[in-house]
Amino acid sequence: MTGRVFAGVDAGSSATKCVVLRFEPGGETVVGHAVTPSGFDYADASARALREALAAADASEEQIAAAVATGYGRASVRFPDGVPRRSITEITCHARGAREWYPAVRHVIDIGGQDTKVIRLCDRGRMADYRMNAKCAAGTGTFLESIAVRLGLPLAEVDALAMRSTTRLTLNSYCTVFTSTEVLERIKAGDAKEDIAMGMFRAIASRVIEMLAAGGRDGPVAATGGVVTYCPAMRRALEEALEVPVHRPPLPQHAGAYGAALLAAEGAAEGDSIALHAAPEVRRDAGRSGSCACDDPPRRNAPSCADSASLRGRPC
């Protein structure tokens, strides 16, 4: 591939994601993306993710015109020398990414490994306000993971169980440790494993409700992040709690990196002033791909299911 590309790297607490895109007159095209465990070394993980995404795009480091680092480890992200780079929070990047997929979206719920964010956008697509979970694992991916570990089940299995739940069960504890204990008590009491598993997702959804309530619930909702990527039950729990359909973009886990790459391109185009404003035009549903296997096909050129091959073989 020739020409300039823009890179976004989202160094999250659990996984580091990278999106490489090319900006063309008709809009942006995602040409590569990757995800890799963050481990202890964000610099190393971000270099790996960038390398893999560039390889997927058949592009080289020299072609990177601008880059944005985001996520918990954003300060440690390294880009090749000479690449103009900026650091922008994951809140802004997730909002930007989600809005590109769903221009009319008003709420973005990002459930990450370490924190959960609820971002409210105004009708012009601008960030109106946002909330992050308090300093606590409850309501995040870590909450699910730690309970799954306690139960000795892979997270995928917890999700599969939850999707077979038939009876509503609510877990009452607020904190991760107490919820683990409550789960064991429920098992002892003979409650169905499927319902208990769904109760775990419901617990996260109820934390989201707390954060969302402040800004009202007007307009479409999109959910992003690793939990939504790998656990369909999470979306189900959110829809049940919010009583509205929740959009799940084709690459939910990459929403932050995607937004970062978009902001890198826009920043370069605008002479490096941060382009956090509304999209130049709100292209409601424009160019939706009818062939995407996702429930909510993205706007034209945005990464879709077809792009997810490099996502370690996981279907979207």
């Binding site: 922008i88 929070t89 809140i91 802004t92 960030m127 956090l276």
Partner: peptide, 22 residues
């Protein structure tokens, strides 16, 4: 024990970004 520096810093940066966007 009740304060997360990393989370707070992200919050503050995002707050400023929110203002930039306005």
């Amino acid at each position: 024990r009740f304060f997360s520096t990393a989370q707070s810093m992200t919050n503050i940066e995002a707050f400023i970004e929110q203002m930039e966007g306005r």
